[in-house]
Nucleic acid binder design. Structure first.
Lengths: 195, 195
DNA sequence: CGCGTGATTGAAACCCTTCAAGTTTAGTGG
DNA sequence: CCACTAAACTTGAAGGGTTTCAATCACGCG
């Protein structure tokens, strides 16, 4: 069923507990898009009112400093949500970048979808609140990690957050996510491997 | 008008643009509390379903590691919101602490207030979404700062985020917020003063 | 095959921490 | 009003972890 958005459907019915009949009512409110590797979905200064559900592939959300150096705020592999939430409500230009690191197919939603879905399905409404709040909690956890623990433990936590992603992204991106240099990641890995 | 929650009232009518008649309807749905300096509002392992609006004083939101060392996630002076959002929806025990660093009076809301206010006032509904999303954006900004810039600039950004707070909290709390030692803050200050 | 990108490793420099001592500040009681 | 005390802040020196820079290696791809 729904080969183009199998994960999305499964997520809605199994995780968000939205009834099949409600899901069917929402079909007109979203679309599926496929982007090639390297495709840019949002650039700094742009406005992008979409919410992405990653059906397959890998997106990343990042900033660039004045020298063009990238800092990855998070990765979004299969079954993750990604959006510049600030962009949804206001028309302020974004500070962030989003692009596809692998060939990626996404389910494209906008604010109307959320409105409709919360109206149709009480389960979705509850679930949507829940994921927003869990998102905030995870951001606090990350801040807490960054201010409280040395790089080695941050790396270990990264592995827990994104299992198997080390095989999918280059090491310098992990370094960029952790706020350290690729050389430091290499040394941490070496040390961890020797145990 | 409303001497006990003057700032709260002003915030609602001027910032959230809620009409006076709508604000009056909400009066039964909140209360005002005053806490002495040092009072604990939430401890790790506890559950606390309140949302605080700081009318006067200063709250702080923090974690502790296994040695009891504190890491401040944020401060909430006058006109700031504070809550453990994860606690609102679920009954999971909290990972965080909240306490009053100064004698503080807060406006106490719970989830029912938000429900009622979004129902009564369309302006509030829009505004509430807006502050949630701005909150997320600010958390991303802080993560970006922590992974991209050295301590000195983090300190300068801290001063912008919390003007005049340096006179209200000890230096070790600022260090704890920045993820560095009090000694390092002292040296950064010295360096900045010499310019 | 040669090129470019990414990973590894080493050495020096640097920033921040740790530890320790000294100084300032604020509060308290004589 | 001063003396005492505790807490906070400053300053110095040594040490550790990370960065920076550079050289080398590994791999995939035109």
């Amino acid at each position: 069923m729904y080969p183009e958005f199998k994960n999305f459907h499964q997520y809605f019915t199994e995780k968000a507990l939205v009834a099949q009949k409600d899901f069917e009512k929402l079909l007109p409110y979203f679309s599926v898009e496929k982007y090639p590797k390297g495709h840019t979905l949002l650039s700094k200064g742009g406005v992008n009112k979409h919410i992405y559900f990653v059906e397959e592939g890998l997106l990343r959300f990042y900033t660039k400093d004045e020298n063009g150096k990238e800092f990855i705020l998070h990765f979004a592999p299969e079954n993750w949500w990604l959006t510049d939430r600030n962009n949804l409500c206001s028309n302020e230009p974004s500070e962030f970048f989003i692009d596809a690191y692998e060939e990626t197919s996404v389910v494209l939603l906008n604010h109307d979808f959320i409105e409709k879905a919360t109206e149709i399905s009480h389960e979705f409404r509850t679930f949507h609140e829940h994921i927003l709040q869990r998102h905030i909690k995870q951001l606090y956890r990350r801040i807490n990690l960054l201010i409280s623990t040395p790089a080695k433990e941050c790396y270990i936590e990264f592995l827990k957050t994104y299992p198997n992603i080390t095989q999918r992204v280059p090491q310098w991106m992990i370094a960029s996510y952790l706020g350290i240099t690729p050389e430091a990641v290499s040394r941490i890995r070496k040390e961890l491997a020797s145990k």
